[in-house]
């Protein structure tokens, strides 16, 4: 696999939960070094798509290639090279944040203590308290540090700004993701906050009814609604168009 190959290639992906089709004939490519925002309405299948990419969910049909690997069969290898922040992050309440990171570090050969320390300082995360004592925002930061400290080639973030205060959002959006973009890392980011997306994303993919209905540069996407660089308005416009 060459450095110019896409980090993610998805063809004809289908995921069903019972009779309900969540993803349907989904095609998608994620260019290396890009920061792509995956947007869409609630229940569109964004989190499901990310779970397929990390191998937590085997698709019913289609092919998925992440960093040259098939996540359904080589999930552990994929996860070793991917930083993933899930929408739900639950760890033992009795463990401390430091103990959790020490535990997680054992599974990543590329784990960097320096990176961990840098991220903690950047996010102002105190590692001494038990998880039970952490606020929702602090837990989100902990998940982010665990996903980033092993310096992944690909970062999959599912609502990373959820629960963060304004300062932390800025830190995450600008400093962390900006740093990743500058370092040439590939990021696929799910968020409902258009402000945050505008701050970090260079591409936007719109997922609706189980399909990628639009995948454009941020500016082209925002210009779609002929309302200048108003991403929120553009998204609303696209969503309205994609509705049957």
């Amino acid at each position: 696999m060459s450095a110019t190959d896409p980090a993610v290639v998805v063809r004809g992906l289908e995921v069903r939960f019972g009779r309900r089709r969540v993803l349907e004939r989904l095609d998608f490519e994620l260019a290396r070094g890009s920061v792509t925002a995956l947007v869409g309405s609630n229940g569109a299948g964004k989190s499901t798509f990310l779970r397929v990419l990390v191998g937590a969910l085997a698709p019913d049909a289609g092919s998925t290639c992440v960093l040259g690997l098939d996540p359904a069969r080589e999930g552990a290898q994929v996860r070793a090279r991917v930083g993933y922040v899930p929408d739900r992050f639950e760890v033992s309440e009795r463990t401390t944040a430091r103990e959790w990171l020490e535990f997680v570090a054992r599974f990543y050969p590329t784990w960097s203590q320096n990176e961990q320390q840098r991220l903690c300082e950047l996010l102002a995360l105190d590692l001494a308290p038990r998880v039970a004592e952490l606020s929702k925002g602090a837990r989100a930061k902990l998940a982010l540090v665990a996903a980033l400290a092993h310096q992944p080639e690909l970062l999959l973030l599912d609502e990373p700004f959820s629960g963060l205060d304004a300062a932390s959002r800025r830190a995450v959006a600008s400093a962390v993701l900006g740093h990743l973009r500058d370092a040439g890392r590939t990021v696929l980011l799910v968020s409902h906050s258009t402000t945050d997306l505008e701050r970090v994303a260079d591409r936007v993919a719109l997922l609706e009814a189980g399909r990628i209905v639009r995948n454009d540069d941020l500016e082209a996407f925002a210009a779609h609604g002929r309302r200048g660089l108003d991403l929120e308005a553009a998204l609303l416009g696209v969503e309205r168009e994609s509705c049957p």
């Binding site: 290898q77 994929v78 739900r88 033992s92």
Partner: peptide
């Protein structure tokens, strides 16, 4: 039930392990 198993599943750990 608590979701801790789901969190562990996001780490590079095989099902067998």
């Amino acid at each position: 039930a608590s979701g801790r198993l789901a969190t562990l599943s996001t780490l590079p750990i095989s099902t067998r392990a």
